[in-house]
Computed example of a mutant assay.
Amino acid sequence: MNKYSVLLMAIGVISLTACDSGPDSPRGFSLPEGDAVKGEQVLVKHQCLACHTLEGVSVETIEPELQLRVQLGGEATKVTTYAELVTSIINPSHKIAKGYMLDAITDSGMSKMRNYNDVMTVTELVDLVTYLQSKYKVKPYEYTPYGRYY
């Protein structure tokens, strides 16, 4: 083996182990299975529909807080993972939904979503995420049809 092969292998090993080590690694993190029926009740209890929309769900007694409410669920070209939904609830400024920027963020670029970490129980979070994940549907990416090139 030449020194470049050894160097490439060393870089590969370091790259693979660097992402999964340390006290801040998500390795080993898992939440219990939730109850989607209870998750729907959590959605209403915490008045999530004041700032969000969810296809097929409406609560007339909740007053909208945003002019353009952020859509939950629906069709997407990629899978919305359990981890993405958990992160969106416990750290909503981690990733801001495109298209809602002006109405859903503060002047400093943070999400206007209030912090539910001290209000919502872990069980409620797990149930809500289980319910919401069932509302996302993956639609195949539509390729642009092109004619034959000659």
Rank of each mutant, 00 (worst) to 15 (best):
D107M: 15
M120Q: 07
S111C: 03
D103N: 12
Y146E: 05
P32R: 11
Y131L: 05
I11G: 05
N91I: 07
Y100R: 00
T121D: 10
A50I: 10
I11F: 04
I11R: 02
L85V: 02
M120E: 07
I62L: 14
G39I: 04
P32K: 12
D107P: 12
L31G: 08
E60R: 11
V86I: 02
K139H: 05
I11C: 07
L132R: 02
L43H: 12
G56F: 14
L85E: 00
V122K: 15
G34Q: 08
D20A: 09
R69S: 04
T106Y: 11
V13C: 05
K135Q: 02
I11S: 05
G39E: 05
Y82V: 01
S111N: 01
Y143C: 14
Q133R: 03
E63H: 15
M113P: 15
G28P: 05
L16S: 03
H52Q: 03
A10Q: 12
N2W: 08
E75A: 08
V37Q: 10
G74T: 03
L8D: 01
I62N: 15
F29Y: 12
P26W: 09
M110Q: 15
L54S: 13
Q47T: 13
V126S: 04
V13S: 04
I11N: 01
V126Q: 07
Y4V: 06
P32C: 05
G73M: 01
G147T: 06
D103W: 00
I62T: 15
H94A: 15
P32M: 00
I14C: 14
V129E: 01
D103Y: 03
L54H: 11
G73F: 01
A76W: 00
E33P: 00
V122H: 11
K137H: 09
G99N: 10
G109C: 07
I62M: 13
S134H: 03
N2M: 12
N115V: 01
E33Y: 03
T80W: 01
G22E: 04
M1V: 10
A36P: 07
L54T: 10
T17M: 08
I105G: 08
H52Y: 09
R114M: 08
G39H: 06
T144C: 02
S15E: 07
V129A: 00
A18G: 03
G28M: 11
S88P: 13
L8P: 00
K135A: 01
K45Y: 04
G56K: 12
C19P: 00
I89P: 06
Y131T: 03
L66K: 06
L132C: 03
H46F: 15
Q67R: 05
G39K: 05
G56V: 15
E55S: 11
T81F: 05
M120H: 06
Q71I: 14
A50V: 12
Q71E: 15
S15G: 15
L132I: 03
L54W: 07
P23R: 14
L43Y: 14
T87M: 04
G56Y: 14
P32Y: 00
G34C: 10
V57I: 12
Y82T: 02
